[in-house]
Design a protein around this nucleic acid. Structure first.
Lengths: 229, 229
DNA sequence: ATTACTAGTAAGCGAGTAT
DNA sequence: TATACTCGCTTACTAGTAA
């Protein structure tokens, strides 16, 4: 998303356009953004084209409201700032359940991974991964996770004459089931999040493909409680 | 501030550059920003020129840290987002005490204003205003105030054959002294904030020009407490 | 009043490359 | 490896103005 569009969207949000239709002229918006009327008008056109706002033309001014897609961008931005100023302790990914290609079972059955999971994560995962497709706008949360999350590194190893790459894990939960997400280190951000757990998640949740789901990742390590004396 | 520079600054902050020097190459930054190495390099040059970051060149990569000026921009942005998502109940302006030109005394002595202050703000101000020069980066808080603050409108009136313009007031306090800031409606955002109070602020605080000061403005109206039955 | 098109100018971009 | 310069191309800007 272009930086100036985000800025414009934020400005509209400040005027209340997340909650209601806001009446504003391109000239008024231009003053807020310290630019010309023409540029503000163009920004609004671009935001509209990208479905980040919805407009209705009144007789004079226009009524503008931010769409849910636009709101997602602002939320993502807010999360970034919360992290910058260390105010949040978890990241929630929203997505839909999908089926994997069975690869998850292959990888999570490798002894080289299993031993490390047991040792470093504290549990032996059920074979296979619980896969969730996240919205593309959620991907910057993945980046945040890499930068801020307390990742657990699982090292690469060799087995059967091939190499199994190193992965990062982040502890979290899906609908109350504790586990961790697994991210290959040498790969770009994907739209799929893979979750492992000692429990067979799909069975426990009795859930179908396409169902909405949330994965919650803990950013702070859970500190053991100090016993009262 | 250019939108893309803010975005870059935010990215550096996410990498921890608010707290410590961060080692990053222009290519790595470019990947984060989804742009080219050349552009990332140019962004860093621009941020440096504007004193928003400080750089040290290592043998390979460079060490980057965000300056306090850069941090202010990020804080201001964070405040904006907090307001968008309704998480803050006050705005604090940081500035330095300055002397006015005596105009404050003239205006605050006008009967037309005095009657409205008494009626709408609940107090009769001491003649004169307590003036604070705010940092230019604080000005977007003024804009926030106009959009979100529970402003009290003081209407224009005529007296002695001239017109006294309408002003907006926002209740707040300076160092524990309750009062309100006064902003002319028909004027651009200024670097000076004028504070009125039933008490002679300068005398009470025994403060000199140039001294650092905070003005706290309440965003939510203080609701009267419900008596317990 | 508005919005937004046209057109000329300015700013931003990244491939190539020097250092 | 790095950073950052040049330069040709693209994108973004605003004055003027139509609708």
């Amino acid at each position: 998303m272009k930086a100036y569009l985000l800025q414009t969207l934020k400005e509209l949000a400040l005027l209340g356009a997340l909650r209601e239709r806001v009446e504003i002229s391109s000239l008024e918006l231009a003053k807020q953004l310290q630019t010309s009327q023409q540029t503000a008008s163009r920004y609004l056109l671009e935001l509209d084209e990208e479905h980040l706002i919805k407009r209705e033309h009144g007789i004079k001014k226009q009524l503008i409201m931010i769409t849910s897609e636009g709101a997602h961008h602002l939320e993502a931005e807010f999360i970034d700032y919360q992290h910058i100023f260390s105010l949040k302790e978890e990241i929630v990914f929203v997505g839909t359940v999908i089926s994997g290609l069975g690869e998850g079972t292959y990888y999570t059955s490798q002894k080289g991974y299993l031993e490390q999971f047991k040792k470093k994560l504290g549990f032996t995962p059920y074979p296979g991964t619980f896969n969730v497709r996240i919205d593309p706008v959620e991907r910057n949360k993945l980046r945040l996770l890499k930068n801020f999350g307390k990742g657990v590194d699982i090292e690469s190893f060799e087995s059967n004459k091939r190499t199994f790459g190193s992965v990062s894990c982040f502890l979290g939960e899906v609908d109350g089931i504790e586990g961790a997400i697994v991210m290959p280190k040498r790969s770009h951000y994907s739209e799929i999040i893979e979750f492992i757990s000692p429990i067979y998640v799909r069975g426990r949740l009795n859930i179908k493909d396409g169902a909405p789901i949330e994965i919650r990742i803990y950013l702070e390590e859970t500190l053991p409680e100090e016993p009262l004396r």
